[in-house]
């Protein structure tokens, strides 16, 4: 299973990552290897094996619906590159 250059570029676009030409080539091969491993695993007969989307040994971890104080505004927005009043400021987003 060989990934094309376009497929790698598309995945990079979805993840918002900029890649050099060399990275595209090397990632195409690496990702293809990973997909190869998955394809091999998919050949295993798993009929009769229960679905396990989680490997956690617990279920139903929940909390009661009680509100607690949030972060102070300066702490909450400490990581925003640009701030305007109480808002984070970003490039124009078209609805």
């Amino acid at each position: 299973m060989e990934l094309t250059r376009d497929e790698v570029m598309r995945i990079a676009q979805l993840a918002r990552i900029k890649l050099t030409e060399e990275e595209v080539t090397s990632l195409a091969s690496q990702l293809s290897n990973i997909l190869g491993h998955i394809a091999a695993m998919q050949e295993v007969d798993t009929s009769g094996v229960p679905i396990s989307a989680s490997i956690l040994p617990v279920t139903n971890v929940m909390r009661e619906d009680a509100a607690e104080p949030s972060l102070p505004i300066d702490e909450a927005l400490a990581n925003t590159p640009e701030r305007e009043d109480n808002f984070a400021r970003v490039k124009a987003v078209l609805e």
């Binding site: 949030s70 505004i73 927005l77």
Partner: peptide, 12 residues
């Protein structure tokens, strides 16, 4: 646990 009643409060 953030409070959901934000309608009259400042952003963020």
């Amino acid at each position: 646990s953030c409070n959901t009643h934000y309608a009259n409060d400042e952003a963020n």
